[in-house]
Amino acid sequence: MNILFLCTGNSCRSILAEAVFNHLAPIGWRAMSAGSHPTGQVRPRSLALLAREGIPTEGLHSKSWDNLPVTPDIVITVCSGAAGETCPAYLGPVLRAHWGVDDPAHATGTDEEITATFMNAYRILRSRIEAFLELPLIAIAKDQDRERLKAELERIAG
């Protein structure tokens, strides 16, 4: 199963989700990330946070959804509707879910406050990914029960 974490810039949230998912996922499940309008760079704070958490950062880069290596089975958007962002709509016959998270790239304040904003986004995403990985993934994949999986993904988003 291939999961795509999607946002607009692909510089923070979707990168964090890709790295965390791949760090925790069982064999046969793989995440990638992309943006509808990628910034072309990953925020250094995202990479530093992942490194502090012991999560590999090799190969992480900001990329367009036009250049995906494989077609995803599941697309999870991570843009925050509360922040007035418009999440890109992936065009394709895939299961879609939305896990809105405020964008730490727009954080202002002291260095500590900005770092805390990145950490908050990371914690939210990690918690949701851990909940996703607690699902009976093999049974869901074998059953091809897309509606059940969609309902679970929406439940996880809170």
Rank of each mutant, 00 (worst) to 15 (best):
V101K: 03
V101P: 03
V101E: 02
D102S: 13
D102V: 10
D102K: 12
D103F: 07
D103E: 03
D103T: 00
P104D: 00
P104T: 03
A105H: 05
H106I: 07
H106T: 08
H106A: 14
A107R: 05
A107D: 02
A107V: 02
A107C: 13
T108M: 10
T108K: 08
T108P: 02
T108C: 09
T108G: 15
G109A: 09
G109Q: 06
G109L: 07
T110C: 11
T110H: 12
T110Q: 12
T110L: 11
T110W: 10
T110Y: 06
T110S: 15
T110R: 10
D111E: 13
D111H: 07
D111P: 13
D111K: 13
D111Y: 03
D111T: 08
E112V: 12
E112M: 09
E112R: 13
E112N: 12
E113S: 11
E113V: 02
I114R: 15
I114N: 05
I114K: 06
T115R: 12
T115W: 04
T115N: 13
T115M: 06
T117C: 04
T117Y: 00
T117V: 08
T117P: 01
T117K: 00
T117W: 00
F118K: 01
F118G: 02
F118S: 00
F118Y: 06
M119Q: 12
M119N: 09
M119A: 13
M119C: 13
N120F: 01
N120P: 02
N120V: 04
N120H: 08
N120K: 12
A121H: 03
A121Y: 03
A121V: 06
A121E: 08
A121R: 00
Y122V: 02
Y122N: 01
Y122T: 02
Y122H: 08
Y122P: 01
Y122W: 05
R123N: 11
R123F: 00
R123M: 05
I124K: 11
I124C: 08
I124L: 13
L125P: 04
L125E: 04
L125S: 08
L125W: 03
R126Y: 03
R126N: 06
R126K: 14
R126L: 01
S127F: 03
S127L: 05
S127Q: 11
R128Y: 07
I129G: 05
E130L: 13
E130V: 12
E130D: 11
E130W: 05
A131P: 04
A131G: 05
A131D: 08
A131Q: 13
A131R: 13
F132S: 11
F132V: 07
F132W: 13
L133F: 09
L133Q: 15
L133A: 12
L133K: 09
E134Y: 08
L135N: 10
P136S: 06
P136K: 04
P136E: 06
P136I: 02
P136V: 04
P136A: 04
L137K: 14
L137Q: 09
L137W: 01
L137V: 11
L137E: 10
I138H: 15
I138W: 09
I138E: 12
I138K: 15
A139F: 14
A139P: 09
A139T: 14
I140F: 11
I140T: 11
I140Q: 13
